[in-house]
Amino acid sequence: MNLSAEARAGALVVYVGEERLDAAIAIRFKDRMREITQQPSRRVILDMSRIDFLDSSGLGAVVAVMKSLAPTRSLELAGLTPNVAKVFRLTRMDSVFPIHETIEAATSEGVRHAG
């Protein structure tokens, strides 16, 4: 599972270096995110700009990470590709997660919801 993280503008930014977030890696994704988010930060921003495919297991893994952080920390998403954005829109998860166009927008602007 290729994830890396950095502290940036008061947030923990997690970069996903995978093209797919699906059943084959969903459990490893959740486990690795649990390790990475041990670092203190009220905001966790997940950079999904490299992910071209997200299935229901991948979506479930992202939701599980959000639930593991709540209620004291937020999980925000950035850089959704068109296919991934469509999954969030069709499942109405775009109303659950703060979604930013880019990491730069997420760290410099206020929170806004896509959709």
Score class of each variant (00 low, 15 high):
64 A>M: 11
1 M>N: 06
17 G>C: 06
2 N>E: 14
76 E>L: 10
90 L>F: 12
41 S>K: 03
91 T>Y: 00
14 V>K: 06
17 G>D: 03
79 G>N: 07
39 Q>K: 12
81 T>Q: 13
13 V>Q: 03
89 R>K: 15
82 P>C: 10
8 R>E: 07
76 E>S: 10
55 D>K: 08
33 M>W: 05
81 T>M: 12
75 L>G: 01
77 L>Y: 04
35 E>A: 09
53 F>K: 12
67 K>W: 12
70 A>C: 07
19 E>Y: 09
95 S>K: 08
78 A>R: 03
12 L>T: 01
26 A>T: 02
59 L>W: 07
8 R>N: 06
28 R>I: 14
37 T>G: 02
27 I>D: 14
70 A>L: 10
51 I>R: 05
51 I>C: 06
6 E>L: 13
59 L>T: 04
91 T>R: 05
39 Q>H: 15
38 Q>C: 15
24 A>W: 08
35 E>R: 14
69 L>T: 10
65 V>E: 00
77 L>G: 03
17 G>P: 01
63 V>P: 03
69 L>D: 02
20 R>C: 12
24 A>N: 14
79 G>V: 02
16 V>A: 07
53 F>W: 12
69 L>W: 11
55 D>H: 10
77 L>K: 02
14 V>N: 05
25 I>P: 06
12 L>G: 03
67 K>H: 12
39 Q>C: 09
33 M>K: 02
17 G>F: 04
22 D>T: 07
18 E>Y: 04
6 E>N: 13
61 A>D: 08
58 G>E: 01
53 F>A: 00
8 R>V: 09
35 E>F: 02
10 G>V: 03
75 L>E: 00
28 R>L: 12
48 M>Q: 03
64 A>R: 02
49 S>W: 05
91 T>E: 02
22 D>E: 05
70 A>K: 06
69 L>Y: 02
20 R>N: 11
70 A>I: 05
54 L>A: 02
86 K>P: 08
95 S>N: 08
56 S>I: 00
53 F>E: 02
79 G>W: 08
91 T>I: 00
42 R>L: 13
61 A>R: 01
36 I>N: 01
4 S>W: 10
20 R>W: 10
51 I>V: 14
32 R>H: 09
82 P>E: 14
26 A>K: 10
26 A>L: 00
23 A>Q: 05
50 R>N: 11
43 R>L: 04
28 R>D: 14
93 M>K: 09
43 R>K: 11
82 P>K: 11
4 S>H: 15
11 A>R: 04
49 S>F: 03
71 P>Y: 10
89 R>A: 13
42 R>S: 12
58 G>Y: 00
64 A>F: 07
67 K>C: 04
67 K>R: 15
84 V>N: 01
40 P>D: 13
34 R>G: 15
74 S>C: 09
24 A>Q: 11
71 P>A: 13
24 A>Y: 08
8 R>D: 07
92 R>L: 13
56 S>L: 08
95 S>F: 13
59 L>H: 03
80 L>F: 10
38 Q>G: 15
75 L>H: 04
79 G>M: 08
71 P>T: 09
79 G>E: 05
18 E>I: 03
23 A>M: 05
63 V>G: 01
12 L>D: 05
89 R>M: 11
66 M>F: 09
8 R>L: 09
49 S>A: 10
46 L>E: 00
1 M>Y: 07
12 L>N: 03
92 R>W: 04
41 S>T: 09
59 L>C: 02
7 A>M: 13
46 L>P: 05
26 A>Y: 00
8 R>A: 10
96 V>F: 12
